[in-house]
């Protein structure tokens, strides 16, 4: 028989493992979504740089493809693991988050460059705050991409979109790949 101290240690061990399993499952899905959005953001920034007149349409299309793609990734994860992760509540949260950002943009009268910075940092803020609960990797990715975005805003000059393609799109892809290894 064991004493209460050993029993407490065993229960703490169980809690720790359960927490790591939950984190691993979140990282698994989040990394796939990050790679998807990273590829889309990379493509959108390159396209907006090449065709600045169509930038608005490009970003609308990217957001639609991203949302549909997120559902597809979630369904794929669901079929493999039996875990549903992108449900109606998640969609509502995303839409509310997006609507708040949209209202802010309308009220603030941002220029194209400020719009790019705002959306990048706004999404990274979400990552960073979520990371405080679900895992350190989100905080690193969120803060890192936000800092590089701001550096680009002040220093990238005419190469801002390519900078954002690499930093924001590429950063999300690399972050997603890194998350799968953490």
């Amino acid at each position: 028989m064991i004493d209460s101290q050993q029993a407490s240690e065993a229960l703490a061990d169980i809690d720790d493992i359960a927490r790591r399993v939950r984190q691993s499952r979140i990282y698994n899905l989040a990394s796939l979504l990050m790679i998807l959005w990273g590829a889309l953001v990379f493509a959108a920034n390159v396209a907006a740089f090449a065709l600045p007149r169509y930038a608005g349409y490009i970003w609308i299309a990217v957001n639609v493809v991203g949302i549909v793609g997120s559902f597809v990734v979630s369904a794929f994860t669901h079929s493999r693991t039996g875990v549903r992760t992108f449900d109606l509540r998640t969609l509502m949260a995303f839409l509310l988050f997006f609507a708040f950002g949209l209202v802010t943009c309308v009220l603030a009268h941002f220029g194209p460059r400020e719009l790019s910075v705002f959306w990048a940092i706004y999404f990274m803020l979400f990552y960073t705050i979520a990371g405080l609960w679900v895992g350190f990797a989100f905080v690193v990715i969120g803060v890192g991409i936000s800092a590089l975005t701001l550096i680009g805003y002040f220093l990238a000059g005419n190469w801002f979109e390519p900078w954002m393609a690499v930093v924001n799109g590429g950063g999300l892809i690399l972050g997603g790949l890194w998350m799968r290894r953490v």
Binding site: A10, D13, I14, I17, A18, V21, R25, T81, G82, V83
Partner: peptide, 22 residues
């Protein structure tokens, strides 16, 4: 189950939905 590594294995598997493995 009491052996420490087997306890960790069971804790990890038990944290998943039923029928899901690692």
């Amino acid at each position: 189950i009491h052996q420490p590594l087997r306890l960790r294995i069971m804790a990890a598997l038990n944290a998943l939905p039923s029928g899901t493995g690692l």
